[in-house]
Write a protein that binds this DNA or RNA. Structure first.
Length: 595
RNA sequence: CGGGGAGUGGCGCAGUUGGUAGCGUGCCUGGUUUGGGACCAGGAGGCCGGGGGUUCAAGUCCCCCCUCCCCGACCA
């Protein structure tokens, strides 16, 4: 295939578009791969669409290779299945909803668990039909509050989503493993660096879940990696171990102290250290000796509100993302002044365990950070304005309703698995695999007969790759200062030939016949045959477009050579015209056998 | 939803104390150029985000609204 630049639908931009910040967005727009059509929705232009389809096909090939079968659902979906699963409500404002002329509710699919479940229920009813793996490559819609970074977070985007159906957990595990391995192959072929981290399943339900993250500063996900062992996790999913109980008998009895004007942890600690009756000899009080009690409201999908108190060490803050992930699908709201007014047991700024939890006056559920071990003593609020209590011992002086692990994760925190420490990084989520279990099969009543003729609820897995996001992530991972720099597997063309000679010499005919030869051996060629365009412009465009092999037919043609540049390595070689095709095939495409 | 920035030809920008819109680039025509974003000459292209107001006169002043970008909140 030969595409001529003189006729391709393309206009490169000399300046960066002002509304694009992240490099992949900037370059994809500048190089004429995409155009914004609406907030968070992009049009694919010819070059971009070629790259998109290459990415899509690599994913399709690997899915087919493991035996998954491709289907295709509509994007326009009925309300009922999502009503049944609860996600009509759980998804909230993020769901695009619409009505037909008879005012019947529809939605634009944000993801398709319900539909796949019902499809299988529709056709299959025996354990002999399982395992079954189905997938689609489909446009998804989510009414994101803030689309970002062009293709990185859109309101309309393309996702490959697959679903596995098994009779038991053992089957699910092997389906999961097969998909996980396929994903490893896919991202390797795409040339996309990734780390696999433990994740929260969030609104999807289910248990085991891992994310494939492309480490990148402009990423929106935060994850940790242990500097010692192979532990890695999304910060939302980090679980610190519980603290083992210690002997409480060494602690003195709890003692209430007047602590006026101590609205913050720091002022509280300073006051304790400055008062002779409260000082601790040889070991000044610090923020981590205090117990901070944070109250929030949970709003459940059914609209019900519930107050929740969380006790954490005073040197930490509650990480709202981690909290949201833990309490999903409930949403977290601030505990406003009017809520304090309605709970007289809670004294703002002086909340202590006494007013919380089991058998207390307030009846508010009280959960503790796992660092608050049984037998540990704390300085905390006395539930009276201007007063705190010291030596309040967990298990002796107060109890809680349980633990919740939602405090912020910090760089250098201890690894939950080994003696190492955690380092914090950012990344872009490019894939997600998880074991859904029976959540959807149960609510939508998908079951099959087993060997004994008994109904068994099917257990499911769900596996996603953002296809359009992957294009952006590859651009993000591979670009340089000059422009895009595609891996060969996804470049819109294999070879970019530039005619750089004067009019009337042999450069054009040389370039044309070289293009023909490359086409004959199966390579896709973009031929810059534009006349009246200076060489500098063509070189800049070639670098911007990022096709990995650039051939210059210019002044060297008189001596019988062309220049062959490797866009990825940045190298350039002069090769005899007669040898050029073989050279390109050999050096850039491994003599084409693998193509 | 909170904080910040910005809406003027395709893209990037200027526009003074209010006086009927300009520059660069891109595009068209002709000519000269041709290995690193060439040059000359002549052109086409704008509801100045939208609506209301003030004024003889509004891109510019006042009010309301919308949109986009960044940070946060939120988000399989």
């Amino acid at each position: 295939m030969i595409q001529r630049m003189s006729s391709v639908f393309l206009r490169t931009l000399r300046d960066n578009p002002v509304d694009a910040e992240v490099p992949s967005h900037r370059l994809l727009v500048r190089a004429g791969y995409i155009r914004r059509a609406a907030p968070g929705a992009y049009t694919w232009l010819p070059l971009g669409w070629r790259t998109f389809r290459k990415v899509e096909n690599i994913i399709r090939q690997e899915m087919n290779l493991i035996g998954a079968q491709e289907v295709h659902f509509p994007s326009l979906l009925p309300r009922e299945p999502y009503q049944t699963s609860g996600r009509w409500a759980d998804y909230g404002d993020n769901l695009f909803r619409l009505q037909d002329r008879r005012k019947v509710d529809y939605l634009l699919g944000p993801t398709h668990e319900e539909m796949f479940t019902l499809l299988v229920k529709d056709l299959y009813s025996s354990y002999k039909d399982l395992p079954l793996w189905l997938y689609q490559i489909q446009t998804k819609f989510r009414d994101e509050a803030r689309p970002r970074g062009g293709l990185l977070r859109g309101r309309e985007f393309v996702m490959k989503d697959s679903y596995s159906f098994d009779i038991d957990q053992e089957g699910l595990q092997s389906s999961y493993d097969a998909h996980r391995n396929a994903y490893i192959k896919i991202f390797d072929r795409l040339g996309l660096p990734y780390v696999i981290v433990s994740a929260m399943s969030g609104a999807m339900g289910g248990s085991v879940s891992e994310e494939f993250l492309f480490p990148c500063d402009s990423g929106e996900d935060t994850f940790v990696q242990c500097i010692n062992c192979d532990y890695s996790a999304n910060t939302e999913a980090v679980q610190i171990g519980s603290t083992s109980p210690v002997d409480a008998s060494k602690h003195q009895l709890a003692q209430v102290a007047d602590t006026p004007d101590t609205p913050t942890i720091q002022t509280l600690v300073d006051l304790f250290n400055s008062r002779s009756d409260l000082q601790r000899k040889g070991n000044p009080w610090a923020a981590h000796d205090t117990l901070k009690n944070v109250v929030v409201n949970l709003r459940h999908p059914d609209g019900r509100r519930e107050a929740l108190a969380i006790g954490i060490p005073g040197d930490r803050d509650v990480d709202m993302k981690r909290l949201e992930a833990q309490v999903a699908p409930a949403e977290v709201e601030a505990f406003a002044d009017e809520h304090f007014a309605a709970n007289s047991a809670l004294v703002k700024g002086y909340i202590g365990p006494g007013a919380l939890g089991l058998a207390s006056a307030s009846g508010i559920r009280f959960l503790l950070d796992p660092r608050i071990g049984i037998g540990s003593a704390w300085i905390t609020g006395a539930n009276q304005s201007g007063r705190h209590v010291m030596n309040l011992v967990h298990g002796r002086d107060f109890v809680a309703d349980g633990t919740i692990d939602v405090s912020e994760v910090r760089d250098g925190d201890p690894c939950p698995r080994c003696a190492g420490s955690l380092s914090i990084k950012r990344g872009i989520e490019i894939g997600h695999v998880f074991q859904l279990g029976k959540k959807y099969a149960e609510v939508l009543e998908l079951s099959v007969l087993d060997q004994n003729g008994k109904q068994q609820v099917v257990t499911m897995g769900s596996y996603g790759i953002g296809v359009s996001r992957a294009v952006a992530a590859i651009a993000e991972a591979t670009h340089d200062q000059l422009g895009l720099r595609w891996p060969r597997a996804v470049a819109p063309f294999d070879v970019h030939i530039v005619i750089a000679g004067k009019g009337g010499d042999d450069t054009a005919s040389t370039a044309n016949s070289l293009a023909q030869q490359l086409d004959t051996v199966g390579l896709e060629v973009l031929l810059d045959d534009r006349t009246g365009v200076s060489p500098g412009v063509k070189f800049k465009d070639a670098e911007l477009l990022g096709i990995p092999c650039i051939v210059i037919a210019g002044r060297g043609v008189l001596e019988g050579v062309v220049e062959i540049r490797d866009r990825i390595l940045g190298t350039a070689t002069e090769v005899k015209i007669a040898d050029a095709t073989a050279y390109i095939a050999e050096t850039h495409f491994g003599s084409l056998t693998g193509k």
